[in-house]
Nucleic acid binder design. Sequence first.
DNA 1: GACGATACGGACCCCGGGTCCGTATCGCAA
DNA 2: TTGCGATACGGACCCGGGGTCCGTATCGTC
Lengths: 196, 196
Amino acid sequence: MTERKPRKDAVRNRAAVLEAADTLFARCAGPADITMADIAAAAGVGKGTLFRAFGDRTGLIRALHETRLAPLRDAVAQGPPPLGPGTPPLRRVPALLDAVLCFKLDNRHLALALEEAGSGSPYEAGHYDRWHALLRDELERVPGLTDGSFAAHALLAATRADLVEHLAGRQGMTREDLRARLAEFTARVLGDGRRS
Amino acid sequence: MTERKPRKDAVRNRAAVLEAADTLFARCAGPADITMADIAAAAGVGKGTLFRAFGDRTGLIRALHETRLAPLRDAVAQGPPPLGPGTPPLRRVPALLDAVLCFKLDNRHLALALEEAGSGSPYEAGHYDRWHALLRDELERVPGLTDGSFAAHALLAATRADLVEHLAGRQGMTREDLRARLAEFTARVLGDGRRS
DNA sequence: GACGATACGGACCCCGGGTCCGTATCGCAA
DNA sequence: TTGCGATACGGACCCGGGGTCCGTATCGTC
């Protein structure tokens, strides 16, 4: 009903813009360095096209992000353990967080751009609620944790793009190093087997 | 040497601007809603004055923040326990985090403005390094914690202004509620006495 | 009260996000 | 193949906000 098939040039241009934006964001220091006009030029289209296709800057970045995120979402929704459903919480939670961290490491520029694009926080616009709900549900099944919701917020906060950027970028921390430290921290929150 | 005493009207205007900016930020929904011109007008000065006194927008917000933060800094640097030095880590760390949380609750607008003002993250511009170093040093004396630095980052991330805003503002979470949940989370990270 | 130093203020500039509309392209149908 | 509505294109244009500049007013000192 509300479906109208788009014209060919429209989809081609859309793809070109996405492509150009991705490489531009990847190449530059900060997301603020590249303007809409830059993207349009790099994609070989006019600004109008760009805004018609994505609405506004945030829309573009969201679309880009969404594209990259799809595989991970699928893996979480219906993939095999330890990411997929059916895995016991004590094993799934660390896996989820590690996956999120890796995603942000692999897409630093994107995640950064997204957080800085949403008017203010990443908490309103986006996928955040989905991740939080997922984590919360798992955490609530962990014995001893009285508030899964807050723990979920806190753990996700530990994987925020700008923190990752700070540690991995500025501070030269290794990918594996970061993963290990997050894993250790997570284990501690989960109440690792330690007694006394 | 490099010290020259400023003129009276200069200090008066500086104070007026700070005052005006504070009330404006407090009154509006988001920091982005108020412009430099607004602040200048509210303070009854010209834009030039405002920029001469603070350099740029970030400078203004930083100055404001610094003012409000001073008492807390003093309490931490040379106040009585549990905030002051000499307190055992297991008691000081929760106290520090609670203090930070309370500060952000009491100055939501400011903290928010600051995080969004610094070009990108709060990790480059500001006091962050001081807080992190302080926390790290304490955490490294907690038995069982293998990486105090990461833990410090993670715990501070749990008190980030936009998260606080999301929980306390949007989600209507109570001040005491939030404090309790952060305290509980902190305790868990510290390895609370629980045995299996 | 007079004069150099300092600060004031707001008109002005620049840049970037977002819009508009005349023109080009698409795709369907005859 | 041609004709014609619907759809998309592009870049000139607008606007709002951060930051600057300099002629004028104020300060404070001699």
